[in-house]
Amino acid sequence: MSDCRPPLASPSRPRYALPPGACDTHCHVFGPADVFPYAEGRSYTPPDAPQSRLAALHAHLGIRRAVVVQANCHGGDHAALLDALARSEGRYRGVALLGADATPASVRALHEAGVRAARFNFVPHLGGAPDPAVFDHVVGLIAPLGWHLCLHLDGAQLPGLLPRLRALPLPFVIDHMGRVRAADGLDAPAVRALLGLADLPGAWVKVSGLDRIGAGRRPFAEGIPFVRALVEAMPERTLWGTDWPHPNVRGDMPDDGELCDAFFLACPEDDARRQVLVHNPARLYGFP
């Protein structure tokens, strides 16, 4: 029984054509459960959203490359992720969920399959902050391979984490704009902390999860000023993603075509769009 809603069956086609080589740096694959079972003890159960549907969505949107992020519902079993990477013929990269049982050999195998980052969830509904010892263990394993961290946190947590983040020996990416609250405005402490990452060379931000920072009503226009501010502050370290199939959405289910168009409104300059959509992910994830 699923406790997540499925993505829209027929998202709109973007009004604006994405540049060649555009990359969706935050998407997931779920199941299918009869092939890739969901983890025991998971915090949510999604409807199946397999690689075939993700590939069809990207073709519909005009997206050539993608970064598939391991989902909490699959836990440490990366079989669905690895299958998606193998089917992509080099067009996808991956982000893993690693724990205390990770070893140099297991991480090397993931690297050879196309994984380039490890993700940690700090948000309460996915279990809260990770064990510091596990966090340090994973950092020690992935840093020699040139990987980075993806961090899923609530904006209010960012100021307290900054001392630790500044000491990291590898780059890190803040997912979903740190889940800041659009209602708090651009001068809120969490937003100022996020924009302040522009001064930290190893810090990146994903302008994904547009629906998650606002009131949850399409087309999520209240999030556009935040995307614009981040692109202006960190043009060479900002990434974009759909977050398909939008797990645990509480408001309107996003239309991925509208999300593409919203990014065009937030980033109207051709050069800046190409930087965020093509050049930045190519540099961070090693696309040719």
Rank of each mutant, 00 (worst) to 15 (best):
D3L: 15
D3S: 09
R5Q: 13
P6V: 01
P7E: 11
P7I: 13
A9V: 03
A9L: 06
A9C: 01
L18D: 02
P19G: 06
T25N: 15
T25H: 09
H28G: 11
V29I: 15
D34V: 07
V35W: 13
F36L: 08
P37H: 14
G41P: 06
R42W: 09
Y44M: 03
P47L: 09
D48S: 13
D48C: 10
R53I: 00
R53V: 05
A55K: 03
A55Q: 07
A55T: 15
L57I: 05
H58N: 07
R64K: 08
R65M: 15
A66M: 15
V67D: 09
V67R: 01
V68T: 02
A80W: 07
A80E: 12
A80R: 06
A86Q: 14
A86K: 11
A86E: 10
R87Y: 09
G90P: 00
G90M: 02
Y92P: 13
L98F: 00
A102K: 08
T103Y: 11
T103E: 14
A105E: 05
R108Y: 02
R108H: 06
A109E: 13
L110E: 04
H111C: 03
A113N: 01
R116H: 03
R116Q: 01
A117Q: 13
A117I: 12
A117D: 08
A118W: 10
N121K: 06
F122D: 10
P124G: 00
G128H: 14
D131H: 03
P132G: 06
F135E: 12
F135G: 12
H137Y: 02
V138R: 09
V138L: 10
G140C: 01
G140V: 00
L141F: 10
H148D: 10
C150K: 10
C150F: 08
H152C: 11
D154P: 14
Q157Y: 12
L158H: 14
L161Y: 11
L165E: 05
R166P: 13
L170A: 07
L170P: 11
P171H: 04
P171T: 02
F172I: 10
I174V: 12
D175N: 06
R179K: 10
A183E: 12
L186M: 15
D187Y: 05
A188Q: 08
L194R: 01
G196T: 00
A198V: 13
D199T: 12
L200T: 12
L200G: 09
L200C: 11
P201D: 05
G202D: 13
V205K: 03
K206D: 05
K206M: 09
R212M: 15
R212W: 04
G214L: 04
G216V: 06
G216P: 08
R218H: 00
P219G: 15
A221R: 11
A221C: 13
E222P: 05
G223M: 01
F226L: 09
V227R: 14
A229R: 04
L230R: 03
V231G: 02
A233T: 05
M234N: 03
M234I: 10
E236M: 07
T238G: 04
L239C: 01
D243Y: 01
W244L: 04
P247C: 03
R250G: 09
D252I: 09
L259T: 05
F264H: 08
L265V: 02
C267L: 09
P268R: 01
D270V: 12
D270A: 09
D270F: 03
D271Y: 02
A272G: 14
R273S: 00
R274Q: 08
H279E: 11
N280V: 08
N280I: 00
R283F: 06
L284H: 00
